[in-house]
Nucleic acid binder design. Structure first.
Lengths: 331, 331
DNA sequence: TTTATTTACGCAAACGTTTACATTTTGTAT
DNA sequence: ATACAAAATGTAAACGTTTGCGTAAATAAA
């Protein structure tokens, strides 16, 4: 794989490398004549600048690092799609690292990205991350960073999120409107911002409708499918729910499986609302009313914000939280 | 984000940069004493080598380029997971590009990767790719490349695939064993290797069971959901199928939706077997017997092969096709 | 002691760019 | 013609590494 360099172009045309470089970058101090000559030859030999050399010189690698809990996930894969698409058009390349919901892997990934000299980070926190020191390091080192979905509480950073409170509220209201009164609530890790916000929406909506929250109906399980099964069974057995509200993408699908399993034995009259970005929600049984996030758009937005920060465009924006809307799909 | 360089270490310890460099790489021509001194200081200032400078020097970027039709896909996201994981442990970073089933985007992605100076490519072809000249370019330029899943016919390249023929055969046999005789077959693009192989398995199994294939039962639709709906409806209306065999991941889910839709009107007694890597197949309605690919393992294998080629380890392997097994899951 | 060998390190070039500064060429005003 | 500004190009250093080669000091052999 032999690639042409500026040096070779210079030699071939019998001019200096700096002239070639300037001609290629359309500098005003190069004559039209020379520019044309250089451009023509460069095209002929299919010259493309070496991004490694440019990066070394400019201290800009034009690459960004995305850290997500996992790629093979309905929500995150769609976000990554958006990130990839936007980054591509903005001249950046994307490295994706997976934390696998592991705090230590998350730290490692950040270090790895730093060592790789990426220009910035897009991060969605792992479910086991309950300490934010590693993020402070990013901030202290002035590494451009944008968070999305699962974000740290800190205010001084850029975030792209959905209105989890509102989305959750709508979901509960939907169930209440359908006559449900004993709405069970399943959440994943309490470390996560999304969990807290969604839970808040749940409580608020119950309260606004004069329904008292029942601790028996509220459970936390991690990302382990078996925990979901256990929690579901326990709730059904002992707490007589007439609906489920489920708080996170993977958990939603896992819970569905548990509910399905249970209803094989005893038929259940239960409705389910849950956060999930699975595309084929309408094929699921038991049926579910999904609360979807605009995943692709979230991805695009994070990139726009990040590139803005990296390239220090004016106006220099204050750290800001971008809030998008969820979509509850009654089918 | 200020990073320490070898130069600074050299200055601080009052030795030359070459000595530092060699000490860091544990060269035999540096005294133990000096090595320890350098290593200790390097650790203290948290030195990590700049991969950009190294890449420039060594003509090795330690990054690879993955080109897939799309990321947000049950199969591909899992493959990418495997690729990412394996690449990570082998010291490589991964750029993912999406062709969006578009031949032109595929070419662009290859060019983009080349310009980025990646060390190699892992590619699964787009559904509209019916010309392989761009791949010959890769071969001619001696760019290490491994294909997976949707591979070119060419023999002189490395591929990782599943035994589509066998997987398909098993699926059909399963249906026949269940008493099915009129098995409809839906495929996506005929350009794809997987389509041809799976179709071959279909025909072979019918033949071996003394069932004559019926053209009326065989349809091709692209990746467009509407085409799937149209094809499904047509087949059901006019060709009296008692089962469906569906040939590709996305198509399977789209078809399921169509079948479900139809069966809302008129109940159908139909069984469905299809290639898909959706994790929650057991939650689907209508039910489906999935033929799954070992997606994660495929990803890992492609990386192993690719890195082997990049690093030109001995023995220099001949281009080879790695065939893995599919898994038919009767639930 | 002298000479040869080994050990440990430094010098400088190279990878492919970009860019401040110096230099030459051309054009303009006197 | 001379002086001078403007335009076009060249020189060289720099980004952070790695590495061939040279060399001084330390050690071994004569």
């Amino acid at each position: 794989m032999i690639r042409t360099t500026i040096k070779e172009i210079a030699k071939a045309l019998n001019i200096s490398v700096s002239t070639v470089s300037r001609a290629l970058r359309d500098s005003h101090e190069i004559s039209e004549e020379t520019k044309i000559k250089v451009l023509k030859y460069a095209k002929k030999v299919n010259y493309t600048p070496d991004p490694l050399a440019q990066a070394l010189k400019a201290h800009q690698s034009h690459s960004i690092c995305v850290i997500v809990p996992e790629i093979a996930n309905y929500f995150f894969s769609e976000v990554i799609n958006g990130i990839d698409t936007a980054a591509y058009t903005m001249g950046y390349n994307v490295f994706v690292f997976q934390s696998f919901e592991d705090y230590r892997r998350e730290i490692q990934s950040i270090e790895y990205g730093m060592n790789r000299r990426v220009d910035g980070f897009i991060i969605s926190l792992s479910g086991t991350t309950d300490n934010f020191d590693h993020l402070d390091l990013l901030a202290a080192d002035k590494v451009p960073t944008v968070f999305f979905d699962r974000v740290p509480v800190n205010q001084g950073i850029d975030k792209v999120v959905v209105d989890n409170y509102e989305g959750s509220y709508q979901g509960i209201q939907y169930l209440i409107n359908r006559g449900k009164k004993r709405i069970a609530c399943l959440s994943s890790s309490m470390n996560l911002s999304i969990t807290k916000e969604r839970l808040a929406g749940y409580f608020a909506c119950l309260k606004d409708n004069g329904i008292e929250a029942d601790d028996q109906l509220i459970k936390f399980c991690g990302f382990d499918p078996y925990q979901a099964v256990a929690s579901i069974n326990e709730i059904i057995e002992f707490s007589k729910p007439d609906a489920f509200f489920i708080n996170s993408d993977r958990l939603t699908l896992n819970s569905l499986a548990a509910i399905r399993e249970y209803s094989m034995q005893k038929p259940l009259d239960i409705e389910i609302v849950g956060f999930t970005n699975i595309k084929h929600y309408n094929l699921l049984n038991p049926r579910i009313v999904p609360i979807q996030q605009p995943a692709w758009e979230i991805g695009v937005k994070t990139v726009e914000l990040l590139v803005h920060k990296i390239e220090k465009r004016k106006p220099r924006l204050e750290p800001k939280t971008y809030v998008m809307k969820t979509r509850l799909i009654e089918s």
